[in-house]
């Protein structure tokens, strides 16, 4: 059984004339699986991440679907019912670790309150766990009694990651954890996460706009476009080829290690206005493979060779050939 099962989740902004930021998303995360969620700014990936942890803030609202985490339907539970499960079942790391720490509390106090809230650990056990998680992210134990403003940006982000591990959560949602950091610190944090995978048992939802980063850390990748999953595929397959034209465009924008190619290909146009969605496929106006059907009928997310893709053209092509497509 899967650890997390998202079923037809819809998130809207605003009550009158709502904008659908997440339009019927379904996927699963299994135990100890690392799943990446990739998309460009405004595609709804962060909204989706927050909604899964039931942290959506007004005017955002869950308008339909379910989030089942460890057998419990989080969308059907009240805030009071959710509270005992928060941080134990799912913890989050926010995009800006800089602002995720309370400026007037020491790191120790911010570690302690969550442990006091959810456990009956003794004082020494609480202290012990605080030191353990700091060791896990390779930060000096000294900083435990420091205030956030006394730490660098990279250290703060590590502290936030350490905090996410305090209660041995089943799932950790990382929302752009390295976006605000420089490349060197980003590298260290990614290596650190890979290392932690061997030490702790947890599943990961890694949200980022950086496909390269996501491919590196994930077992499975979800590509999101205009509030929908357009492709779900294993990371190693994606490294070979992307099925959806949008995925392919994203892949073409990545530098290829070892090649001399200095030309990267961007994607023409811009994402659709969520207030005025095109009738057919949301990606059709920017797609190179577009057909008449694409402008009329919205494609479904279909199973193809163990992957899932939301495309009329690629879907048919693969079905007709009945074998793996060759991209030339």
């Amino acid at each position: 059984m899967s650890l997390l099962s998202v079923e037809g989740l819809k998130v809207t902004y605003g009550l009158r004339n709502p904008v659908y930021a997440v339009r019927g998303v379904s996927f699963e995360i299994f135990e100890e699986e690392f799943v990446g969620l990739v998309g460009e700014s405004g595609c709804g990936k962060s909204t989706l991440g927050f909604a899964i942890a039931r942290l959506e803030r007004p005017p955002a609202r869950i308008a339909g679907g379910r989030v089942v985490l460890d057998g419990r339907d989080w969308t059907a539970m009240s805030e009071r019912e959710l509270r005992p499960h928060r941080w134990k079942d799912v913890s989050v790391v926010l995009q800006s670790g800089m602002n995720a720490l309370n400026p007037v509390m020491t790191i120790e106090a911010q570690f302690r309150d969550v442990m006091v809230q959810h456990t009956d650990w003794s004082e020494p056990a609480i202290r012990q766990r605080a030191l353990e998680v700091l060791d896990m992210v390779h930060i000096d134990r000294d900083i435990l009694f420091r205030y956030p403003h006394e730490l660098s940006g990279g250290m703060k982000q590590r502290v936030v990651i350490a905090m996410a591990f305090l209660l041995h959560p089943k799932l950790i949602i990382l929302d752009e954890p390295t976006t605000a950091l420089d490349m060197v610190v980003q590298r260290e944090i990614m290596d650190n996460l890979m290392e932690l995978r061997g030490r702790e048992k947890f599943s990961l939802l890694f949200i980022s706009h950086d496909l390269g980063l996501v491919l590196e850390i994930s077992d499975r990748v979800l590509i999101m476009y205009a509030g929908q999953i357009v492709e779900e595929n294993r990371a190693e397959n994606l490294l070979e080829y992307g099925l959806h034209p949008y995925t392919q465009a994203l892949m073409r924008s990545l530098p290829v290690p070892g090649s001399d190619a200095r030309e990267f290909h961007g994607l023409r146009g811009s994402p659709p206005n969520l207030r005025q969605m095109p009738k057919g496929c949301a990606f059709a106006p920017r797609c190179d493979l577009v057909t008449a059907e694409c402008h009329e009928v919205e494609p479904d997310l279909e199973d193809i060779n163990g992957a899932k893709v939301r495309c009329h053209v690629v879907g048919k092509e693969v079905r007709v050939r009945g074998s793996e497509p060759s991209i030339g």
Binding site: A53, L55, R57, L82, R83, P84, H85, R86, W87, K88, S91, V92, L94, S96, N99, A100, L101, N102, P103, V104, M105, D113, V114, Q117, H118, V160
Partner: peptide
Amino acid sequence: DYVLLARAKGLSNRWIATMYAARN
């Protein structure tokens, strides 16, 4: 963000309102 994170941590409303929001 730190108030959002406090909610994610499942802290009590009273604690979030005083130590995280009002204190700042």
